[in-house]
C-alpha cells in the first residue's frame, strides 16, 4: 500500500488540488479518469523508460493502461517516485480544459511541474 495506488487515489488527489471537494463536483469522474489516461499517454511520450514493462519485447506485448470511471479500485502500476507527475498533468490538463479562462496560469504551472519532475536535469 503506497500513496497513489488506485485510480480513486488519483481522482481524490486531483480534486484536492482542483479545489473541487464538494458534491456535485465541477469535474466529473469520467473527465478526471479520461485525463489520467491522457497523462499516461503524454508521459509515455517523453519518458518511455517509465513504461518499460509495457514495451514490446520478444516475450510480451502489453497495451498501455487505460481506465474508465468504473475502474476506481484498479491499481495504477506506475513508479512511485514519479506518481505526482501524473497528478500534476491530470490537474493541469483539467484546468486548461476549463473554458472560463481564469485558471490558465494555474494550469500551465501544473503542466510545467509535470515536465520538471520528469525531465529537469539535475546533474
Amino acid at each position: 500500500m503506497a500513496e497513489l495506488d488506485t485510480v480513486q487515489d488519483y481522482v481524490t488527489k486531483s480534486r484536492t488540488m482542483l479545489q473541487d471537494l464538494v458534491s456535485p463536483y465541477r469535474f466529473s469522474d469520467d473527465e478526471l479518469v479520461g485525463n489520467l489516461n491522457a497523462a499516461i499517454l503524454d508521459t509515455r511520450r517523453i519518458r518511455p523508460d517509465l513504461f518499460y514493462q509495457y514495451m514490446t519485447t520478444p516475450y510480451s506485448k502489453t497495451a498501455l493502461p487505460f481506465y474508465v470511471s468504473s475502474d476506481m479500485t484498479a491499481m495504477v502500476d506506475f513508479e512511485p517516485m514519479y506518481r505526482m507527475a501524473l497528478v500534476y498533468h491530470l490537474v493541469g490538463y483539467t484546468q486548461l480544459q476549463n473554458n472560463e479562462n481564469v485558471d490558465d496560469q494555474r494550469g500551465m504551472a501544473f503542466m510545467q511541474r509535470w515536465t520538471q519532475i520528469l525531465q529537469t536535469v539535475t546533474a
Partner: peptide, 14 residues
Amino acid sequence: LYSQPAKPYTSDKL
C-alpha cells in the same frame, strides 16, 4: 545512463 536523452539525470559531461 547519463547519455540517455531527456532524463532528469542526462549529463553530457558525466
